[in-house]
Design a binder for these strands. Structure first.
Lengths: 203, 203
DNA sequence: CTCCTTAGGAGTACGAAGTACGCTTACGTC
DNA sequence: GACGTAAGCGTACTTCGTACTCCTAAGGAG
């Protein structure tokens, strides 16, 4: 009956991601997104309650992009595939990592992923608090990895600085930082996840 | 020769923590900290370059409070003790978790902790990229746990909401969330860390 | 004891960001 | 073709971080 809305959620998210990908997370302001859409600043408030709601839309979109169909394989391999897809989905927009950490619990799209993870873990013979712990540990590992990667990538500047620290004060740190520079993110994630999965298997 | 500074770093940090503990992280503004110290807002800039520097002081203080002397025990047990001390140090000021995540790499006090961790891992027979991965995985686990705990504690409101989801749509999630409510944070951390340590041992 | 150096301290002000509020306008239905 | 409901816009207020300026006072050197 009334005038139909002229912007879809997808358009909002696309505009927000465009701003973030181009200018970084700090540039994600209501004004910037509105400008990106060719709309007045306050026009955005027709579609989202506030800035948090906009951020949540973005995070939800990232999670929804993850395919939850899994191959026929052992449960560890299926967990590996699922978590790696999540990692890759976030890595497509590196600057949104802090948003993902802040809003993942409130994003409906993440519930589907958790449910899928739980079904795989159940398949692996886990239940009760063991299943709770396994799921939390796996998600925690992903969150920790994203955080690590975002603020201190192994092959990034922080590692270089550490590798140049006075070896007298921090002998192992300087040495280890040098070793670290050759480990790419996907290898770091895969091998780290293998450690966790090994721990889950040998209960 | 000139007038000595009248505020110590410790006083700055104490004021900032007082504000954060009392009113939450969002209340941590230059104005609020200055008021807490009985000083003009701009007076703070005599002691810190900007707000980031103040946050860094806080994070560094949290890390410095961690005792790095370790008991005579197996390397896994020493790792457990060290990481649990880090967890407890942060848990004393729950609202600073986001600050810790943002600034840990830049806080000098964390270097000492990393160095200690590396020495224990070396004792456990790890070196090269294995040592890199072990250290990253353990720190990642801590960061992930802190993040989990901060934004979605197992015994918190988010879990309750999930346990009340439509069991038809999310059967495992609703069930698992109900199981989760009985797991206290320290148990979650200990058992999660055990999983990782098991994975590190059975290489 | 006095003076000089230098930091401490206060106040003002500006730009950026979130967002409340009220007016105008366009769409879909009768 | 008229009307009612939202859409869309512009203005303005509030809260922050922080640059700038001026004044004060501490404390050592003579």
């Amino acid at each position: 009956m009334p005038r139909p809305r002229s912007l879809t959620d997808d358009q909002l998210v696309a505009a927000a991601l465009a701003v973030v990908d181009r200018e970084g997370l700090a540039a994600l302001t209501m004004r910037a997104v509105a400008r990106e859409l060719g709309v007045a600043t306050m026009g955005l408030y027709r579609y989202v309650a506030d800035r948090q709601a906009l951020e949540l839309l973005v995070v939800d979109h990232v999670f929804r992009a993850v395919d939850t169909s899994l191959p026929e394989a052992g449960w560890q391999e299926r967990i590996r595939v699922l978590l790696d897809r999540m990692r890759v989905a976030v890595a497509r927009h590196p600057a949104v990592v802090p948003l993902v950490l802040r809003h993942r619990q409130a994003a409906p799209g993440s519930l589907r992923l958790i449910e899928t993870m739980l079904s795989v873990l159940t398949d692996g013979g886990l239940d009760g608090t063991d299943r709770v712990l396994a799921q939390r540990t796996l998600i925690g590992h992903l969150l920790g990895f994203l955080q690590n990667e975002h603020s201190a990538a192994l092959s990034g500047p922080g590692t270089i600085v550490m590798s140049e620290l006075a070896p007298d004060d921090y002998p192992l740190l300087a040495r280890t930082a040098a070793d670290a520079r050759s480990v790419p993110p996907d290898e770091e994630f895969r091998r780290g996840l293998d450690i966790v999965l090994r721990g889950l298997s040998t209960t």
